[in-house]
Design a protein around this nucleic acid. Structure first.
Lengths: 193, 193
DNA sequence: GACTATAACGAACGAGGGTTCGAAGTTCGA
DNA sequence: TCGAACTTCGAACCCTCGTTCGTTATAGTC
């Protein structure tokens, strides 16, 4: 591993290429599993030799971590921003879930990897950041749910919602006749009194 | 691999031991992942030498398949039986979900493995049986949902329910203050009009 | 007690795969 | 055009792990 170039002109290409690796890795990991996918296969997909990958990432695990970070960080940021706007609890919940579902379906591969490699993420010091991001997001959702008029106890509503939305990554197809917004509206309708 | 003994007296012990392997494997696979867990570790947990595992299973993958079969087959059977009893759609839905949730929490490790190794199960001829069992169960649930008075379109209700119930395996703790029956009732309450 | 089926051992094999590294190629800036 | 920074190559290293197999121990059966 070498690290990012300091010259700005090169930095851009470096970042783009690195991003491509993450993208292809997410696709491959989602389809064939993290352990099953070899660095050789990943390199071949990118049209690179094996060793070249280590110019962009220090290890296979760091590729996985980049996938998780790129999944969680923008979601957390956008959700925080959204909840800064004052609005009724129902409306906040609706917009939050819509944002969330849209994010999940836009990053389906990332999500599937995130779910499949749960056992890795749960244990291990280096995964602490990812775990706390997820926790922070869950707290945001919990906060909104507590304000909204629900049909069930807020704790169960949170767990149910987490299950519904995360599971969306496993069945959503872009060509399907349900848009992310419709899906989100459906979920919210189940929860609200 | 040797196969089951023909003498009935030994057959019983063989089956019991084999079952222990499945149980320990589910626990280890759920915690550390299927690929990460080695046959050496699994054997050591059982107090066996490595090669002895192959007396009970022809391969590591067959252990995984036993886990999946033991998860799906009883569930499918019990659900089928339940739905043979005549009852109102609401009541059938309630009982089915209660049975389902109880099964999921009683076989949490099996469930977690089943979810984490989705990519393996999705592809591969040898997994056809497991896939069709899951599909059959989903059809059972779909059939009940179509009869019941729901708050949303039955397709989305099915997907939402699948997400909620399956996700239960990830957070349920026996010492928690929600019983499987309460959880199931909460889920059903969300769906019914 | 001897014979046989069963159970377990444990070392070794063989393949696969993550990672390293020094050299070669390429691109940028002056 | 030249030199430095950057990118890529690709073979080799080294270790892990699933699986095999000949042998040894154990337990039912007559």
């Amino acid at each position: 591993m070498a690290g990012a170039p300091s010259r700005p002109a090169l930095r851009e290409r470096y970042d783009r290429r690195r991003q491509e690796v993450v993208y292809e890795a997410a696709k491959a990991f989602a389809r064939h599993g993290y352990d099953t996918t070899t660095m050789q296969e990943l390199a071949a997909t990118m049209g690179l030799a094996t060793g070249a990958l280590y110019h962009y990432f220090g290890s296979k695990e760091q590729v996985l971590m980049a996938i998780c970070d790129q999944l969680m960080d923008p979601l957390l940021e956008q959700a925080t921003e959204l909840l800064h706007e004052p609005a009724s609890p129902e409306r906040q919940l609706g917009e939050l879930v819509e944002l969330w579902v849209a994010h999940v379906v836009a990053h389906r591969d990332h999500m599937l990897v995130f779910q499949q490699e749960r056992h890795l993420i749960e244990s291990g010091e280096q995964w602490r950041g990812v775990r706390s991001s997820r926790k922070a997001f869950e707290r945001l959702v919990a906060g909104v749910l507590e304000q909204a008029p629900l049909r069930t106890d807020p704790r169960l509503a949170l767990l149910a919602l987490l299950g519904m939305v995360n599971h969306t990554a496993q069945w959503y197809r872009p060509r399907g006749d349900l848009s992310p917004a419709q899906i989100a509206a459906g979920y919210v309708a189940l929860l609200l009194a």
